[in-house]
Design a protein around this nucleic acid. Structure first.
Length: 275
DNA sequence: AGAGGTTCTCGGGCGC
DNA sequence: TGCGCCCGAGAACCTC
């Protein structure tokens, strides 16, 4: 489901719903998703009595800050949060419930069970996986053409898998990488270190503008994504190639194609994006 | 029936 | 030979 624009939208909506709430206790129905600490018991014990102070984001990870802890949550493909009254029926595929002292509950639902949660002592969350080693945020000054160029020069991979590597930059996923490459007129199978300086500059610009426009539109809803208030995104209406196989290219009219690159379904225009 | 918005682990291949 | 890096494949799970 979520790439940076969706996660940022979830963060913003979640902030309104959950900040200031005190956790009475936590229920975990699928212990495998709690990656740290090792025992779910310790996870529950730690969070009892904590108040959610702030909700942050690093790449596609959400971070819930309490007085003493940082809860790092990744939605992977289908993870969703929602606030409910305690007496509302629990929906199928709900795996974690944070019961608040005011009678509300924050529920985490995830059909495919790929999502993860890591709990760290506050301030130590960036020292180890999964947050250590992440590349720069696309909207920060740390992400520059120079940085991108330097990283791309050092790899023999195809450009698409390189851009999906969260060590190079965070936030791009399968939708936005296809869109950014289309907008930059770069074929997804180009070798990363073969891009010209001009191509690198355009690619840099299109990565940032694609992601920021998508944040403005509240992300893209393809199949199932909704934010924490149950609202869908609107950026799917502005997609040029993702999910548009066999439709005419909006720029040149050529029929768009879909292949597999790096194991991922890949959408592109065979005319605008040359190898 | 197979693919789906993600990322981790594993093992092969290559270069010192 | 051995080690380390890089990269691609497969796995984790459930729905339609």
């Amino acid at each position: 489901m979520p790439e940076l624009p969706e996660v940022e939208t979830v963060r913003r909506t979640l902030e309104v719903l959950a900040v200031g709430k005190e956790i009475d206790h936590v229920s975990v129905f699928w212990p495998k998703m709690i990656k740290r600490p090792n025992e779910v018991e310790q996870f529950n014990d730690a969070l009892r009595g904590q108040t959610i102070k702030e909700i942050g984001r690093r790449g596609k990870f959400l971070i819930f800050y309490t007085e003493d802890y940082s809860l790092v949550s990744h939605l992977r493909m289908e993870g969703k949060y929602g606030l409910f009254d305690a007496d509302e029926p629990v929906e199928k595929h709900t795996h974690v419930i944070f019961h608040f002292t005011d009678g509300k509950e924050l529920r985490y639902k995830d059909v495919r069970k790929f999502g993860t949660m890591h709990l760290y002592g506050k301030g130590t969350e960036f020292d180890t996986q999964p947050l250590a080693d992440l590349g720069p945020e696309p909207f920060s000054e740390d992400f520059s053409v120079e940085w991108l160029s330097d990283k791309l020069k050092k790899t023999n991979r195809k450009i698409k898998p390189a851009l999906l590597d969260q060590k190079i930059l965070v936030g791009l996923g399968n939708i936005y990488v296809d869109e950014a490459l289309f907008r930059a007129k770069i074929h997804p199978e180009r070798i990363a270190n073969s891009l010209s300086p001009e191509e690198e500059a355009v690619l840099y610009k299109e990565i940032v503008s694609t992601l920021s426009e998508a944040v403005e539109k509240g992300g893209s809803t393809i199949r199932s994504y909704v934010n924490s208030q149950g609202q869908i995104g609107m950026f799917q209406l502005q997609l040029y190639v993702y999910g548009c196989k066999n439709e005419p290219c909006k720029v040149c009219g050529t029929l768009l194609e879909k292949t597999v690159v790096g194991g991922r379904g890949t959408h592109y225009c065979p005319s605008c994006q040359n190898l």
